[in-house]
């Protein structure tokens, strides 16, 4: 059967696969390589219907999926100094930055919005991996600080959704400092007694994992996401060994006690709403409905 599968099937697929459809109509699953009709993918919250792989999500889709009725208000983030080190490798960092800005129409790799989830006001900060690998420089730090400040101001829980390769090398030591800066920022939310929830998505590594992303009161992870400190290649080069199957994936982290749960994207909103409800409305729902002046003794 092998020769058949290898030889004939691709040819058949070649005939069957429409050639001239615009890019945005069909997507290829990066995990199983099957083609998925874009509208189906969108309906399925960008989870492959063939293999269940969770594709990377654009921030607007993430916001639309999490907030009640897909309604949210994005906040404008303070401007950060662009290219503070005037960094240049094979290309100018300033040019890379502009290119990413033009391509995405956004200022940097993070966006912050507020809205409701299950009727509870929340602030969500989400990363765009397609903006320079979601890397954390001063602007991303600025976004996290703004998100934390807004959460405190609104007395609302903060949910952060990282998708990041780590610190942004081209901002040198200043990107490293964002690890401390973001830790201070989320610390303020926690100190106010507000829930700080992290939803780890593919991938979350390096300085992002080693700071605010691992400090959540609750840590959720999407299935199959790469989450870790050191990159797989660096580890392989250090220990000169092949890495075990599933290493640094969400399920591996769950097994090793590093995240609370791995949640399928279809269950994500409901899971978060339940968590928020339990943390924010600690009294039984009956108490909230009880009319003033009703039997107080019974309520105690």
């Amino acid at each position: 059967m092998n020769w058949l599968a290898n030889l004939v099937r691709p040819k058949i697929q070649k005939w069957v696969r429409p050639k001239d459809v615009p890019d945005h109509l069909w997507n290829k699953c990066p995990a199983c390589a099957n083609m998925i009709f874009h509208r189906d993918l969108e309906k399925n919250l960008f989870v492959c219907q063939h293999c269940g792989h969770h594709l990377k999500l654009a921030i607007k889709d993430r916001f639309a999926m999490l907030f009640d009725d897909g309604l949210f208000q994005k906040i404008e983030l303070p401007k950060a100094p662009a290219d503070p080190l005037r960094f240049r490798d094979l290309k100018r960092y300033g040019d890379r930055l502009k290119e990413a800005q033009n391509r995405t129409g956004e200022a940097d790799a993070i966006q912050v919005a507020h809205g409701k989830m299950g009727g509870i006001g929340v602030v969500i900060a989400a990363f765009d991996f397609h903006f320079l690998g979601g890397s954390m420089g001063v602007a991303v730090g600025e976004g996290l600080v703004a998100a934390a400040e807004l959460a405190v101001l609104q007395d609302a829980p903060l949910i952060v959704v990282p998708a990041s390769g780590g610190a942004r090398m081209q901002e040198g030591i200043l990107s490293l400092m964002q690890m401390a800066r973001s830790t201070v920022a989320v610390g303020r939310v926690k100190e106010k007694g507000l829930p700080y929830i992290v939803l780890l998505t593919d991938p979350t590594t390096g300085g992002v994992t080693a700071s605010f992303a691992m400090l959540g009161d609750i840590a959720l992870a999407e299935p199959g996401a790469v989450i870790g400190f050191a990159g797989a290649r660096v580890i392989e080069n250090t220990i000169r060994e092949k890495l075990p199957e599933g290493f640094q994936r969400s399920e591996y982290l769950e097994e090793h006690g590093m995240v609370d749960m791995v949640v399928h994207r279809h269950e994500l909103r409901a899971t978060l709403i339940r968590l928020l409800g339990l943390l924010r409305n600690p009294k039984p729902a009956g108490d909230l409905l009880r009319l003033p002046g009703a039997d107080v003794k019974a309520a105690r």
Partner: peptide
């Protein structure tokens, strides 16, 4: 730098660093 190895990752290198910063 912090040690990049399988055992370090398995025991939560990132979390350990994050908590030390905190």
């Amino acid at each position: 730098g912090a040690y990049p190895g399988i055992d370090a990752e398995a025991r939560g290198q990132a979390e350990a660093i994050a908590r030390a910063i905190e």
